[in-house]
Design a protein around this nucleic acid. Structure first.
Lengths: 203, 203
DNA sequence: GTCTATATCGGGATAGAC
DNA sequence: GTCTATCCCGATATAGAC
């Protein structure tokens, strides 16, 4: 859809997402969002009554996108290691297209921790489901006995962290070379997958 | 040292650290820092000419603290797996005492990526050193052939992430129970260490 | 629905007394 | 070195014309 064909509301939401994700709520300016959307400030308030309400719309959406769709992949009938590979691949791909998502969400949930409870409650995700799926594999003897919660946190952490830490990784580890960072990201799907499988595979 | 015995400068720095780490630069208010330090706003500007300069002092300090002192531990003569255990233990302990450090640093380096280059340049840390240390262990046959950079990123990621994601982990995974979250953190040193060693140990 | 102009207020920074 | 009072700008939000 061409830029000028979008509805004004859509233009605002797209612009707000760009600015909020880069600057965070406190750093974002309504003027900058208006400029990005190529409209004027007053229109922002016509469509969304306040900065808060506009932010809520963006955050809710971003958080849903950020939440790993790990459950869906776990539901498929593939063997565990293939599920794992599929999840890591799709999650890192999504983050590559939304590189600011991790640091944005992490910052905002720390700024306002209460907010997320309501959002997640509404999403219908249940943590027990995931835990049980992993426990099942342990009992079946496919993987070593691991505490599910730690395994889940480890997987998510290794996927997210490289995006949040880009300035350090690229600027410090790779002498500020964007190409080296891109190469690193490309390798990562395979590296993370095999790192995890190596760790939990039954010996 | 009792609160009232501290020099004014120290009181300001302590207060600023608390407020900046919780709210970030954009969310922090000079008034709140003054209140926290139990002095008035004008005195802040007397000691540090601007919010920017005060922030710089805090950030530089926080970032140094945040940078894993992984190199020092690698220098010791212990076997690799013991070094690994020692590092994870000391890093998670430090973060437990500074739980806001990870999300603060991550947010601020994304808000202003250029800044960190200068800070790291001045710290004298060299990434090659770490890479070589890991390569040596690979050649010596102690561990599986792994790409050093990915291993390093994985280790740091698994240490930091639980602190940044506390609202999600505690609020969602643990039904908002601080006790369950604390227990989870306590388990984590052992879990992360064995997770890594399991993955890279020569089979 | 979209614009220009303006009200209002919060917050960083400074002046000046003590 | 520490305080009170104040300046002034920038940012959210609204009024009102078209």
């Amino acid at each position: 859809m061409a830029e000028q064909d979008k509805t004004t509301e859509k233009k605002i939401l797209d612009a707000a997402k760009i600015v909020f994700l880069e600057k965070g709520f406190d750093g974002a300016r309504m003027q900058e969002i208006a400029d990005e959307a190529k409209i004027n400030k007053a229109l922002l308030h016509y469509y969304f009554r306040s900065k808060d309400k506009l932010f809520d719309a963006i955050f809710k959406d971003a958080f849903q996108q950020f939440l790993p769709h790990i459950a869906e992949i776990m539901m498929t009938e593939k063997p565990l290691f293939e599920k794992l590979e599929a999840f890591i691949d799709s999650y890192i791909t999504m983050l590559s297209n939304n590189p600011h998502l991790p640091s944005f969400v992490m910052h905002e949930i720390n700024r306002n921790p209460e907010r997320i409870v309501n959002i997640i409650k509404g999403s219908g995700i249940k943590p027990e489901f995931l835990e049980m799926a992993i426990q099942k594999e342990v009992k079946a003897g496919v993987i070593m006995p691991v505490k599910p919660i730690h395994l889940i946190v480890n997987i998510i952490a290794m996927c997210l962290f490289p995006f949040m830490a880009r300035p350090i990784i690229q600027g410090f580890m790779f002498n500020d070379s964007p190409e080296a960072y891109k190469k690193f990201l490309a390798e990562r799907k395979k590296e993370v997958t095999s790192f995890i499988i190596n760790s939990i595979r039954k010996k």
